[in-house]
Simulated assay, not measured.
Amino acid sequence: MENTLYLSEDGKQDLLESAKWAKFLAIVGFVGSALLVVFALGLSTIMSFLPNGEHFESLGPSYFLGMAFIYVVMAVIYFFPCLYLFRFSKSTKEAILKEDNKQLHLALFNMRKMFKFVGVMTLTMLIIYGIIIVFGLLAGGAAMMMV
């Protein structure tokens, strides 16, 4: 016995509209990722136009190389949820237009991957923020004891 899921015309239209917004957000995300990479690669050029005060000379080239690396990592991290969102959009549109259950499954699979990725990243950032707050409080307490 095969289980089937009925999707009303309103539901199909809602999914198609969601797919359009997902595609828009994915494309904006791809552009944002590309801009992060361009900025990372151009970081040394940008820094050469800034005034050569003591502050910038003391940082050295390894600082700017490290910053460029961080921007590239951020671009890569931002790229994947956008990719899953784009795949969701593409598969959803194809599933609705062709009434293809396999494409709908693929669309929902990509949506799940996107939410899982964003959820894990959110949890990771919350843990990092918590650690920073704890160390900040400990450092503040230690500084108060030294006074």
Rank of each mutant, 00 (worst) to 15 (best):
L50K: 03
G29P: 01
F64P: 04
L41F: 15
K116M: 07
A107N: 05
S18L: 09
M74E: 06
L108N: 03
G130W: 08
K90G: 02
G53C: 04
G141R: 11
E99H: 09
F135Q: 07
V147F: 14
T92E: 02
S44A: 08
V118K: 07
G119C: 06
F56H: 15
L5F: 14
S8R: 12
D100H: 06
M74S: 00
G11W: 10
M144C: 05
Y84R: 07
L41W: 12
M125G: 10
V118T: 07
G60R: 10
M121F: 10
E99N: 15
A34G: 14
I46F: 15
F115D: 00
Y6P: 01
V147Q: 14
A75I: 07
L97N: 14
G136E: 03
G66A: 01
I131Y: 06
N52E: 11
L83N: 02
V134K: 03
F80E: 10
L138E: 10
V120K: 01
T122H: 00
L16Y: 00
A143R: 12
A75G: 02
H105W: 08
K116S: 07
V31M: 13
F30E: 03
F86P: 03
I70G: 11
V37N: 06
A139W: 11
E99P: 05
F24A: 01
I131V: 13
K113R: 09
I27Q: 00
V31Q: 09
G53N: 13
P81W: 08
Y129M: 13
I96F: 08
Y78W: 09
M47C: 07
L41I: 04
S33L: 06
Y129S: 12
T4Y: 14
D10K: 07
V72R: 04
K93C: 01
N110M: 00
A95R: 13
E94D: 13
N3M: 05
L15I: 04
M47N: 05
